[in-house]
Structures are given as structure tokens and as C-alpha cells.
């Protein structure tokens, strides 16, 4: 079980799926990236699912991927907020399934979280962690199956808090980001970060974390819902908190 992965299948061509596929290809890992037709996953010994943060959607994709890739393949999800254990419980081989959580932007962030569910086999964790550690500039962190795991669990309440404070008129969007970038030295201000992540992706993740915990820090701020309803999704739609292209 300790050998490298010979071929990695990536399902989902959104911001994260596309970026992970490009990063792995550039690192010399054979990659098969698919969107809806999963038949090409035959032969993959690791399948990484990066479809939208909807439980039923993820389970359907993972179950189909498991059937195509066969019982020898490891399955992984990039979820930011759903439970690895719950997703695994809906699959035929939960011992071969784990969270494999990347951060945005994929090519410059240094840590990848490997998240075992209750049923995940230690070999699966060890293999994913060794794989992440072997990638250029990456370090695996094995963390527990809690909403958001490590970094997303910390980030979601902070980003929600900033959106609410912005809606409450604490300061303008640019001033909020500039204050945090210059005052705290963060590379990216929170509203520019949300534009990059995608407001819809953040909304899905924080809704899932709120549903799982009932913790109001994860409750999506009303402005976030309004922005997503209006199609203002951030960089990918050309209009978000900081991004405002002329149409």
C-alpha cells in the first residue's frame, strides 16, 4: 500500500479541481481530469473529488468514481466543511476514503490537510500524507474530522464576521482589506480572499458547517446570500466585494 499513486483522477473542473489538476500535472504526476463523464477514471489509483459542497452531489460522484476506479483505488474529497465520516459511510469502502483538503491558491499554499473519518484505514492516511509530502512545496497535516478541519474551520467564522461588519458599515471594502493587509501583514485582505475563493463556494461551505454544528459563527451572513443570489460570485463572475469589472 505504500507505493506512489500511478494515476490520479480529479473530478470537478471548478476553481479547486482545475487548480489541483494543473498543480499535479506540473509536478509530474499523471492526471486524468474529468467533469461529468467519470468513465475515464478507470485505471486511477487515487480519485480526488472536488465537486460543489452538496452532500448528495458528492456522494453520487464518489460512489460512481469508486465503481469505475475499482476496489484498489483510494478515494478522497476536497470538501471544506462536510464530514468525512458521513461521506465515507455512504460509500462502499469507507476505509479507503479520506479528506484531502487543499487551500487556495493551490500552487502557493504550503499545507494540505489529510483528514481521516472514523472508518478510514491508517494505511489510507499514511499513503495520502506521504503523497502530499512528496509534492513540491507541500506539507501534509493530519487533522481531525471536524467542520472545516483546521484552516477552513478557522477561516469561515472570520470571513463571515468581516462580511457582516462590512454590511454594518464599519468601513468600505477597500479600507477593510487595506487595514488588515497593512495592520496585520496578511498577504490578502479578507474580501479579496472571498472574491478569489468564490462567494458561492464559501456560502456552500459555511452553510454545511453551520448545519453540522449549529454554531452561529458559521451562519452565512445575509449579505453573502444576497451577493450569491445576485450572481456576484467574486473573481469568476467579474463582480464581488473587490472585483468590479465593467460589463
Amino acid at each position: 500500500m505504500s507505493e506512489k499513486f500511478e494515476r490520479v483522477g480529479i473530478v470537478g473542473a471548478g476553481t479547486m479541481g482545475g487548480a489541483i489538476a494543473r498543480f499535479l500535472s506540473a509536478a509530474g504526476v499523471p492526471v486524468t481530469a474529468v467533469e461529468t463523464d467519470l468513465t475515464a477514471l478507470a485505471g486511477a489509483d487515487l480519485v480526488v473529488e472536488a465537486v460543489p459542497e452538496k452532500f448528495d452531489v458528492k456522494v453520487a460522484v464518489l460512489a460512481e468514481a469508486a465503481a469505475v476506479a475499482g476496489p484498489g483505488a483510494v478515494l478522497a474529497t476536497t470538501t471544506a466543511a462536510l464530514s468525512v465520516t458521513e461521506l465515507g459511510a455512504a460509500l462502499p469502502g469507507p476505509e479507503r476514503f479520506a479528506g484531502f483538503v487543499w487551500h487556495n491558491p493551490v500552487d502557493t499554499t504550503r499545507t494540505v490537510e489529510v483528514v481521516p473519518g472514523l472508518c478510514t484505514a491508517p494505511e489510507t492516511v499514511a499513503r495520502l500524507a506521504a503523497f502530499a509530502d512528496s509534492l513540491p512545496g507541500k506539507e501534509a497535516l493530519v487533522v481531525g474530522d471536524r467542520p472545516g478541519f483546521l484552516l477552513h474551520g478557522l477561516l469561515m467564522p472570520y470571513l463571515n464576521d468581516v462580511v457582516q461588519a462590512y454590511d454594518d458599515g464599519l468601513a468600505g471594502a477597500e479600507d477593510l482589506d487595506v487595514a488588515i493587509e497593512l495592520g496585520l501583514g496578511y498577504r490578502t485582505g479578507p474580501l479579496a480572499m472571498l472574491d478569489r475563493i468564490g462567494l458561492d463556494a464559501h456560502l456552500d461551505a459555511t452553510e454545511a458547517a453551520y448545519a453540522a454544528t449549529g454554531d452561529r459563527r458559521y451562519a452565512p451572513p445575509p449579505l453573502l446570500r444576497r451577493m450569491v443570489a445576485a450572481g456576484r460570485l467574486g473573481d469568476k463572475s467579474g463582480h464581488g466585494f473587490r472585483t468590479q469589472e465593467d460589463h
Binding site: L141, L154, Y186
Partner: peptide, 23 residues
């Protein structure tokens, strides 16, 4: 997060510095 055992001191510092771009 540290007190609740979500991750270790070094893991949290590594993730925040390395993946969020904090100084």
C-alpha cells in the same frame, strides 16, 4: 483550536503562515 486538540501548535502556525500568507 489548540486547546480543543484540533491540531498542534506547530501545525496551526504552519497552516496559518504557510497557507494563509500571514507573516
Amino acid at each position: 483550536a489548540l486547546e480543543n486538540g484540533v491540531a498542534t501548535r506547530d501545525e496551526i502556525d504552519a497552516a496559518v503562515k504557510g497557507s494563509l500568507g500571514h507573516p
